[in-house]
Computed example of a mutant assay.
Amino acid sequence: MAADLAGRADRVKTPFAFKARRAVIGLPYVWLLVFFLLPFVIVLRISFAEMEGARTAGFHLGSYATLLSDEIYLSTYAQSLMYAGITTLICLAIGYPFAYFMARASATAQPLLLMGVMLPFWTSFLLRVYAWKGLLDAETGWVGRLLGHVHADQLLLPLGLISAPGQFMYTPFSLILGMVYTYLPFMVLPLYGTLAKLDLRLLEAAQDLGATPWQAFWRITVPMSKAGILAGSMLVFIPCVGEYVIPELLGGPETLMIGRVLWDEFFSNNDWPMASSIAVTMVLLVIVPLAVFNDSQAKAAAR
């Protein structure tokens, strides 16, 4: 009798659990469909239209033809990818040691360090970026005066990061500095989450086998933290490619990025098909390589 009741209970629970699991899995897909795929399809449709007065109509490939033939757009895409890549590498170089230190800190210090990383999010993103305009001023900003005092311009000028001695604002240097400052926490947090779960016994075993601390770091710690490196790099690189606020406030004429071009086409030139084609191309530049990489990783893991 008890066995029959238990069997009936299992049969009742199984459909309910299956439906609940489908609902939990399906909700994120519904969210992506409504708030990502559907708007993207609308933008994609506009990109193939042409302006007729204040409206878009018809089917036209002129926007993509212009995009692929105009050197301004091509150089802007190249600059956006370059600045995003440089920012990602600098964030990784700074964020990895800091995340490693956080993961090895005592249990009482880790929450304080984690709060220190997240503390900038308590302030408006726009205010934090705008504050760098004052900080980098060569006459009134303490960061600008400090850089001038240590003659940092002698190093930055040959690299092409500043346009003139003592001119730290509205340059590639100020742009990269602003993006590194803004997106560094997005690199640190995934790395910390990965490094905090690292099994320290593997490092002890490597040292017992004669590996130096440096060899153990490169052969065990870095490969084991690969997931955090990839996640942090994507979280930094993707928003940097389409960044608009930081180039607008801290960048100069030579730091034109695709986000500013997109804004100009939408709101200054009122050319919605051209702006939509720029947006679609920017999304594809990020999503297609990411999808190919994820597919290759899944096939490698299945072998």
Rank of each mutant, 00 (worst) to 15 (best):
L146K: 03
A54N: 13
F293H: 13
L195N: 12
G116E: 05
A211V: 06
E50P: 01
A17H: 00
C240G: 01
A211Y: 09
L175V: 00
A57R: 03
E71K: 08
T56E: 12
L119T: 05
Q154I: 07
W214R: 14
A211I: 07
R8Q: 12
A227F: 07
G251Q: 06
S163A: 15
L37P: 03
R219H: 12
L184Y: 01
M179D: 05
V288R: 11
G85N: 07
L33M: 10
M115K: 09
Q207D: 14
Y170E: 06
I72C: 08
G242L: 06
A93G: 11
A9N: 07
A9W: 07
E71N: 06
L44E: 02
V129D: 07
V261K: 11
L156G: 11
H149G: 08
F40G: 13
I46H: 02
Y130H: 07
M82D: 01
L159Q: 03
E254N: 14
S80H: 04
L195G: 14
M1A: 15
D271N: 14
R128T: 01
Q79A: 12
L203R: 13
G141L: 09
L175W: 01
E254S: 15
R145P: 02
A105V: 01
Q110C: 05
A196C: 14
E139P: 01
E248S: 14
A57N: 02
L81E: 08
P239V: 00
D264V: 00
D199Y: 04
I258C: 03
V43F: 03
R45A: 15
K226N: 12
V43Q: 05
Y29H: 11
L161A: 10
W272F: 13
A2F: 10
L177G: 04
Y192C: 04
T221N: 11
A93L: 14
T14W: 09
E52V: 13
S69I: 02
Y192S: 06
L285K: 02
S296V: 15
A138P: 13
M102Q: 05
A227N: 14
S63K: 09
A107C: 09
L157A: 12
R260E: 14
S63C: 09
L290R: 07
L175M: 03
L44A: 13
D153R: 01
G259E: 11
R22I: 13
L202Q: 14
I246C: 07
R128L: 03
L37G: 03
I238F: 09
F266R: 04
S225Q: 12
